[in-house]
Design a binder for these strands. Structure first.
Lengths: 193, 193
DNA sequence: CTAGTTGTGTATCGATCGGTATGAAACTAG
DNA sequence: CTAGTTTCATACCGATCGATACACAACTAG
């Protein structure tokens, strides 16, 4: 059972290009023609390597979470609750206002792909978001330094809400500096003293 | 110069139906077929009455701001800064988690219509958002009770960021009760004492 | 070399996209 | 009644959508 003709493209590099297009144009706003052009891959090769548009998006989303969005999981390893929140909020600003990346968050973006043919992609994004928020809640539940009177679930949800808002602001044109001010104020109010 | 055949539909009611579809499915996720079906209007009649898809969306967005989203402008008339923020944040929860309306915010939704053919709709939504945030900043600038040490622009941006985040959370399935808890905590931290 | 396997390139599939041409229907003015 | 005006309804436009059929190219095993 021999191997046939070798691939003319690097699947990982092609997936990175696909991620960039989805990130910039959204799931619904991205066509197969956009993808093949950006990836430098012909249509049949794309389908053979990645399945269909939905599956390619799911793979790109995985790559996003493990790459540009990895700061979110890493933030949970910070020693204090304060530092966890700091790294999440400030990381959200940096992620969504990068000079060389599209503005906004692929995940937040994809939640709003709510057309009839986008249910699968949208649900993948929502599942991914839920997992992140659950992990944050768990982190707070086991934190000895959680401010008294705070419910871990509600606090996790509020932090997530703020990072979501930052992503929306970035997608609507706010600059990195403007959002750094917002993040700083949010941290001052969330974590007084 | 007489009047010809009378309209077989009510333009305002039809616009409300269009608004509901755009709200639920997003600009990119809504097709002309979806619109004509929901509005009960044939395609040529739709174009004659509302222009094209972009113009129909702009009219629906206006109706949204003046209807379901009117609480935002009305909140600015509250006597105190605290009350302004309260009404904005709590109003965002109610707006985006209505039992008889789509979950999420049409305006936040439309910011993420970033495909090649959606630039006009997206820019309309962004302009609308900017106007709202500017009005909020003005309200804070002229407030005698603004907490000292707060920049009106940054505070307005943070409040807007929180309401944006609430919209994202609602769009991704959070319930009204869950978001009411988030809103309450946000208000407690934003406005201590 | 030949047989078998896999990827590439072109050309195309039916469905749907946003947008219209066309003519009949329903009204008013005279 | 007729003439003029506006809307309605069908049927259709070219373009694009996501997804494939098919033949050829490039490789390995024997």
């Amino acid at each position: 059972m021999p191997g046939g003709r070798p691939r003319a493209f690097d699947p990982d590099a092609a997936l990175d290009r696909a991620l960039e297009v989805f990130w910039r144009q959204g799931y619904e706003g991205t066509s197969l023609a956009d993808l093949t052009a950006a990836m430098g891959v012909n249509r049949p090769s794309l389908y053979a390597a990645f399945g269909n548009k939905e599956e390619l998006f799911a793979k790109a989303l995985d790559r996003y979470v493990g790459g540009p969005g990895a700061f979110a999981a890493e933030a949970l390893t910070a020693p204090t609750v304060r530092e966890v929140i700091e790294r999440l909020v400030e990381g959200a600003v940096e992620l969504t206002t990068g000079a060389d990346t599209p503005h906004g968050c692929l995940n937040v973006n994809s939640v709003h792909a709510c057309g009839p043919g986008s249910a699968t992609a949208r649900e993948a994004a929502i599942a991914c978001r839920m997992a992140g928020e659950t992990a944050l809640r768990r982190r707070f539940e086991e934190a000895p330094d959680l401010p008294p009177g705070h419910d871990p679930g509600v606090l996790a949800r509020l932090v997530h809400t703020v990072t979501d808002g930052i992503a929306v602001q970035a997608a609507s044109g706010r600059t990195r500096e403007e959002l750094r001010e917002v993040a700083a104020l949010a941290l001052r109010t969330l974590l007084p003293a």
